[in-house]
Design a protein around this nucleic acid. Structure first.
Lengths: 262, 262
DNA sequence: ACTGTGAACTTGTATAGATAAGTTCCTTTT
DNA sequence: AAAAGGAACTTATCTATACAAGTTCACAGT
């Protein structure tokens, strides 16, 4: 019963095709704006039926990597939004993907009792300890974002053995077996407090773009609660939606206690 | 050649099924948490093959309205983010969907030459006229958002024959044949200017959550450029993403001229 | 020169069937 | 009683085929 084949040796055909197509787009084998080979051609090339090919194309279509169709061959559309997942999970990988040099200065890393807000977001009792991290993030040397993240002990413990100024903490944690799987992001605006102002080199009270996120494991346990504050002149968020294709982004009423921060 | 069958009389089977299933979920015929009938059962009921049924279910699955599967029957999951599309296209329908009373006060509606920023966003020459609308939006009587929208003449013309304080302008325009199809939203933060401050009843300089959007027709022509500014204590944006499922939301570098507004 | 007709392509939709793989639950064996 | 086995269900994947519907383009007719 504990066969536990962690990584499936043979991914389904349509997934293989999807990744192959994605690779061809990202490497430029299928240049931006060019027509995608016809389904018949692809079936021929991969010796498969139309089902898996269409399923793979549909996935890319949902990401807007491919547009058009019905009659004429669809077209590669590789403009904006390239890596929408990594974008949100790792600042480092986001930055390098844009050709920028990511930097980070860890102001503080501590193990301490969770504040009420943090405890609530992580679903912990009030007297439980968490690993808290306060970092300044830079792009090409310019202060861009202040990150306050709080991990449950189980997930944050490995961080004390890691140079948090060196690389991607996200990748580090995943490689150490922390099951970071999904995240819920809340985006709003907030005025810079004294700390933000000093770190980012802006006047206190300046508007900042705030992203709060709760990262959970694949079983739904909250592992991290973080609050990132961006200089809006340097980074913002983009979403594209259509009448047909429903985006997993929603405008919501701000719940409960307004203004409270941490 | 001008057959122009605006509304297809017979939608594809899988779309009919999708809407029927969605209806059953929203009406409670398939209660939250209950198991969805098996594919075989649905094929039986609708006298169809598995293809369309699976295609319809896949669409709902992508919206997280249905979760689980493979072995056991999938389950209805009707909690969070319900109407992610209407959410972004119509303030009125978003508000009513939340059980709030939407309100709006039109400050100004005008036909005038587009400002450089607006012209650029709409892809127009500098001397072209647009229909500009400045509105204050309310939730249960409380000032919530300032909306500055600019329509190309073709799309905005009908607005002069419409009481812009009465209902959903989005619905009004769609019903008048304006082909509002998709939108690209950019989200950041900005300080309230004098106008914002007065309309929203907040101090000038307060941080506001800003959503700029370019709405385009199904052929890709820009029809509307709008800038909405929300009080962050009242509304914000939420996105949910996982390692597998790629969200069409991305964090991007703020392009070009920083700070410019209109 | 212009028009339009239609063949030959494309993708979209739907059917039918086969096999793989996961879950549930009852039965048998120990 | 507990564990092992297996039947009967489910969804996932894949194949093969057919027709509908939109696009492109060359060719014939005017």
């Amino acid at each position: 019963m504990i066969s536990r084949r962690e990584a499936p040796l043979r991914a389904p055909l349509h997934e293989q095709l999807r990744e192959e197509f994605r690779r061809r787009i990202s490497t430029g084998a299928w240049p931006d704006g060019s027509q995608v080979p016809s389904e018949a051609t692809l079936c021929e090339e991969f010796k498969t039926s139309r089902g898996p090919v269409r399923q793979a194309l549909a996935a890319l279509r949902a990401e807007q990597l491919i547009v058009g169709g019905r009659g004429r061959a669809p077209v590669v559309h590789r403009d904006a939004l390239s890596q929408p997942v990594e974008t949100f999970l790792s600042f480092t990988e986001w930055a390098t993907g844009l050709g920028k040099e990511p930097g980070q200065r860890t102001i503080e890393i501590a193990k301490r009792t969770a504040s009420p807000v943090v405890a609530a977001q992580l679903g912990l009792a009030d007297d439980v300890q968490v690993v808290s991290l306060l970092r300044l993030r830079l792009l090409d040397g310019e202060p861009t974002m202040v990150e306050r993240s709080h991990f449950v002990l189980e997930a944050g413990q490995p961080l004390f053995g890691f140079d948090t100024d060196s690389g991607s903490t996200f990748r580090f944690l995943v490689e150490h077996g922390v099951d970071l799987h999904s995240a819920r992001h809340t985006i709003d605006a907030v005025a810079a407090d004294e700390t933000d102002a000093e770190l980012l080199g802006i006047p206190a009270g300046s508007p900042l773009l705030r992203e709060r996120r709760v990262t959970t494991s694949s079983k739904g346990e909250a592992l991290e609660y973080a609050e990132d504050r961006y200089r809006p002149e340097l980074a913002n968020f983009v979403v594209h939606n259509t009448l047909n294709q429903r985006a997993p982004l929603a405008r919501v009423l701000t719940p409960g206690n307004p203004g409270e921060t941490e």
